[in-house]
Design a protein around this nucleic acid. Structure first.
Lengths: 345, 345
DNA sequence: TTGCATATTGCATGCCTATGCAGAAATATG
DNA sequence: CATATTTCTGCATAGGCATGCAATATGCAA
């Protein structure tokens, strides 16, 4: 088996041309006459020749590899992003080199990425230490933090308007007459959570309300379920809950309905953040903040390739507007109030 | 910016050793004295040296890259697989090169994979033409078809017992007294669908029943919803539905409850296949066939690396046992009958 | 037919690292 | 202390391809 690899030289010999001619045939835009081109192509087909992308990458200094780092794929927002991102990257002739990280292994992962000479990095998860950011910046490789940012960092970032989005859903609840509104937070030190929480707090303050209670769910189902249980273990119950992402919101809804025996939205309103596909499913119909994943990805890819082409890295921070996805997991305000919120008044 | 890349030669110069010494320092198991090793390490740290994985791959002929091909990530079974697979691969010092395919682009994708000199290929989706299979086999690269197979192919495959699993859930429905059992199929020409359908048919036949009706959902939510609507548009309704995977089953449940206004499982039982995380969610509580994704991945990785190490490819077909995940979307038979089904009697 | 501009081609080299080989150094043996 | 081993080390080369440069071929106008 393992047929000995066939090289451009083999093809050249068979086609009676030089190795350069073969190379040029497979390099778009290079100068080759149609005749040699055909001869080379024929010979290549005969031998089953395939240019070696690694050798190519070595000599041209362009690996055509984009590293994507994610921590988990169980929050459906990320698979969705990964799929679209990968497609976008492939369209430009690049491939995604995937890195799944645990907390604590990011450093090694970044080392690996750099070893593979990737031309760009998307960190779709995992906070990045500023030393790491510096290391990347030093190499001149564009880095985009996706759905998170680090203020001290030199990297670009693309997020949606987490503050504004959270403010909007919270406004929605307040306008609908809710007064005992709890917040279930994600991972405390993540930028998304901080922004969403501050949006929540802004809306509450503006509405003259104090948060009914605040618990941490760590962006996991289990954490969220646990938090929800604590919220409903006494009679001092919230009448609405803002959950820091959809993935947790589903778990919260399960606890409310199946364990606390309450009805949504009659007894409690629940809202989330992300608008993952499941939010639209009949079992949940979650009112939530829609992150325009497609736009975010578009921006990410744009930044990446602009910087790859220009060869220089500049920090850019894109904030993509968020919108409301109004379904039935939360009581609605009057149509006119709703209108006003959606207009972003 | 793009600090000019620092090579092993630069390190060698600074450390006052030869380039070989640097190389050996970074090659586990190579022969270097502790003293030079330290000198090299120091110099490397000073310069920020990182071995170039591509150059390394070129000369050693080992890219340490595994290509993974998937078609979609919206069926949650695949993100889960991708995550675990990627982790397993990383543990062995390899990285996943991700390929997202549409129908029809597999050929180009495979070309790309081979160009990148990947050492193994996992096709977690997308059927593979036998010519493609031959091409891979010719190169001597191990290929594992994950969750699908092609009889004519030379590639290995890992699937779960789709026939047996489908038989089990169908038996469950029959034992619970259902007689009007419909089947919603996935993609017609996929091996998973064919096997699941044939398991369904076997059980029906053994139970002396004819399928109530059979529709195609193409493994998409929309397809499944459409099929479900057709099932319930007349009064001739099924009293149970076997759906070829969970992802479709959720859509079916939504239609039954929200559009047909029926109750599950009182009016209709619904069962699925895969046991994705959402099947356990309170909104669905889907009775389904559990595919042991972890075992499947374990086997996949095992095949892959055994063949990579031995350097020879042999066809192997692993079938991982499936089991029942009994929840509440389907009426239950008596405890004793249930027991018998689970025991696989 | 000749001369010049342009399009092709081949040569030679470089990208960065791993590794066989032979000699040098360090260690063990008697 | 001499010799036999073992451990290190550096040299030189290879791995497959892209690309600047110089040389050749081609096309066209005069």
């Amino acid at each position: 088996m393992a047929r000995e690899t066939v090289t451009s030289e083999d093809v050249a010999r068979l086609a009676n041309v030089s190795q350069s001619a073969v190379s040029r045939t497979f390099t778009p835009g290079a100068s080759v006459s149609e005749r040699t081109r055909q001869r080379v192509l024929d010979a290549a087909r005969q031998l089953g020749y395939r240019p070696n992308a690694l050798a190519r990458a070595m000599i041209s200094g362009r690996s055509r590899l984009i590293a994507v780092l994610v921590a988990y794929l169980d929050n459906h927002f990320y698979p969705q992003v990964l799929e679209q991102l990968s497609r976008a990257v492939q369209e430009r002739g690049y491939q995604v080199l995937l890195f799944l990280t645990d907390r604590g292994t990011q450093d090694q992962m970044v080392q690996k990425m750099l070893q593979y000479q990737v031309e760009g990095i998307v960190m779709a998860s995992a906070d990045m230490s500023s030393s790491l950011a510096r290391e990347c910046a030093d190499t001149g490789i564009p880095v985009v933090l996706f759905n998170r940012y680090v203020t001290s960092s030199l990297s670009s970032s693309v997020t949606s308007d987490n503050v504004g989005g959270a403010r909007m859903v919270t406004d929605l609840l307040i306008s609908a007459g809710h007064r005992r509104i709890a917040f279930i937070a994600g991972t405390e030190d993540s930028s998304t959570n901080q922004d969403r929480e501050s949006g929540f707090l802004q809306a509450m303050e503006r509405g003259g309300l104090l948060p009914f209670r605040r618990l941490v769910g760590d962006y996991t189902s289990e954490g969220a379920a646990h938090a929800a249980r604590r919220l409903f273990e006494s009679d001092e119950r919230p009448d609405a809950i803002v959950v820091a992402n959809d993935h947790m919101a589903f778990a919260v809804m399960d606890v409310i309905r199946d364990e606390a025996g309450l009805s949504i939205p009659d007894d409690v309103s629940v809202v989330g953040f992300d608008d993952v596909p499941e939010a639209g499913w009949g079992g949940y119909k979650l009112t939530t903040v829609r992150q325009a994943a497609d736009v975010m990805i578009e921006e990410t890819v744009k930044i990446l390739f602009e910087q790859i082409e220009k060869g220089e890295v500049e920090r850019r921070a894109i904030i993509v507007p968020a919108s409301l996805s109004v379904r039935t997991s939360a009581r609605l305000p009057s149509a006119e109030k709703l209108e006003r919120i959606i207009e972003g008044a």
